[in-house]
Write a protein that binds this DNA or RNA. Structure first.
Lengths: 336, 336
DNA sequence: TTGAAAGCGTTACCAG
DNA sequence: CTGGTAACGCTTTCAA
């Protein structure tokens, strides 16, 4: 193994000088810097992570906590993670993957053992049980999602209340008077996943304001479940002309089923999705959608964590991204 | 921060004793062990990961390298990763997530800096360019997938050659004389992803042996792409009675399209999928399938890595899991 | 602008 | 069965 001492010897300087060349924490003559860097390259030196972490109390690792269950859409989770890893690398950090089912004890372990400098937590619930533990950690924590009582924790998410509202507004403006929300799995509601309630709230409030009749149908991520929900929608609410779909997993099945039932989109029924942009574009019919900015949220979460590691105190912050609606033609005016 | 010295003092023993209680590397009197463990619990002690790594040259971290591009099915990748994380925890290891686009240099970095004890590499190509680097690492490497020249690298995968063969056998036994393979994206073939070629090989060889006419259609993961492929299949090969689908992403669209074209499964056409079991069950029509044992492969990969970390020399090994076909009713006999 | 040396918290060897 | 202590490789303070 090549150590900093080897590099120092090769370059004819002291180990501390090599360290400072690497960290840039004090000025080094151009001449010395060159010699050192040449030696580093020639010897193929990489600083030992453990030693560095021990001496500096910084592991240069970010922990990302993801849900293991698949009732959150898996590709969506993956997009967050991918963005986080990529962003972390630009800050010279690596990502350690934890699963939610390790529970609060897992969080404590990772923080107390100094494996990670900061934590990013996904799949946040409204009444998030991990909050006390997270607050007690002596490290920066960023939640992707907003619990009911964020306190002084840092959060970032799409403004789902505004998103729910925007969906209704869009359809109401097109003349729809009766719409239905095909929502996330009942499990998601039961668990109180933070975004589901906020979306529903915005949806219902604006429906009230705009005098639009709006019903909500949680939908399990299976073909059969979807069929049942659609049966309910069309028997109980035969006047429905618009569907808001807040459930990535059943977008494909939904379009098939509408086709099978002889309903054309958007002529017979408008479909408005809440999902990542690539998914809105990948279907038989491109879908008008409110973008779920997964990549942006993932890298933003990392940035916020890094800022908190930066030194000075940073204000606690709940950052909500404004929703953007992109019209891809799957919604249209109501035909009288 | 609670250190091992704090625990030692509280328990009235030496730090080394605490260390040995934790590692079990030498026998400790029941009495002492109890006192130490009580102190550990009372103080909430967690060993410092950096210090431990430095002293033991073991980080207790496994690096998992995943593809970032989405032409491999994302949920499939996630299933591997989830299984790997879970398995790693049972061996007291954590998982560091690397992306393929860090390239060989990323692998070298992680190994040379001793961030990880072993590496698990997914999305292996037939002519895998990372092979030289991987061989040169002084750490265990396990590939999920088999390159053309594995050399003495450890690999684990489904036996895709046998899988391709089994698909043809199953359909041939049911009387099918002309079948088509809807395969992975052309990108996957172009990149030479290891499993695609092996599957195709088994498929074609057995087709020859069984005198079954078999055509192959790489298919991009989009609805439009699928439609074009299906057009080709049915115009160029109007006699096709069986479809083998080796592309998770288009299973849903495929079933919709067949429906739209008035083809009933399995009466008019048999469909045989190669995919994880949950996906075979999640469609409008449950699909007869060759199981892609993602969870098993993920945890097996970790196990193999751990065994190689265990101490004694372990033989290089290419482990291919035998395919299993599960009949869910989407394949049937040809009706004359 | 550079060097020397004192830690950082564990592990594991050497003693007993 | 237990204790003392020298590493482990780096960062950072103190000195020059």
């Amino acid at each position: 193994m090549v150590t900093i001492a080897d590099v120092a010897r090769a370059a004819g300087v002291s180990p501390s000088t090599v360290s400072y060349v690497l960290s840039g924490k004090r000025s080094i003559s151009e001449e010395t810097r060159r010699r050192v860097q040449r030696s580093i390259r020639q010897l193929g030196y990489h600083p030992n992570a453990g030693a560095r972490a021990l001496a500096s109390s910084r592991s240069n690792v970010l922990a990302v906590v993801i849900p293991l269950r698949t009732d959150l859409n898996v590709p969506v989770v993956m997009q967050f993670v991918a963005a986080a890893v990529t962003e972390a690398r630009t800050h010279d950090h690596d990502v350690l993957l934890l699963t939610k089912d390790e529970g609060p004890e897992g969080l404590r372990r990772v923080a107390a053992s100094s494996i990670a400098d900061a934590l990013i937590v996904m799949d946040v619930e409204a009444a998030e049980p991990r909050l006390p533990v997270l607050r007690a950690l002596d490290r920066p924590v960023v939640l992707i999602g907003v619990p009911d009582q964020p306190g002084d924790l840092t959060c970032v998410d799409l403004d789902f209340t505004a998103a729910g509202s925007a969906c209704v507004t869009h359809l109401a403006d097109l003349g729809h008077r009766e719409i239905a929300l095909i929502g996330p799995s009942p499990e998601v509601y039961k668990r109180g996943t933070s975004y589901s309630g906020r979306f529903l709230h915005g949806f219902q409030r604006t429906a009230g304001e705009r005098k639009v009749r709006a019903a909500s149908f949680p939908c399990p991520p299976s073909y059969d479940g979807l069929r049942e929900r659609l049966d309910e929608v069309f028997t109980r609410h035969p006047g429905v002309t618009g569907l808001v779909v807040h459930n990535e997993a059943i977008l494909g099945p939904l379009l098939s089923e509408l086709g099978r039932r002889g309903k054309q989109v958007p002529r017979d029924i408008s479909v408005l999705a809440v999902c990542p942009e690539d998914m809105a574009e990948a279907h038989a019919i491109p879908l008008t959608s409110i973008a779920l900015p997964t990549a942006e949220l993932g890298s933003l979460a990392v940035e916020m964590a890094m800022r908190r590691l930066g030194g000075g105190t940073v204000q606690p912050e709940v950052r909500l991204l404004s929703p953007t609606l992109i019209d891809r033609g799957s919604t249209g005016p109501v035909i009288a």
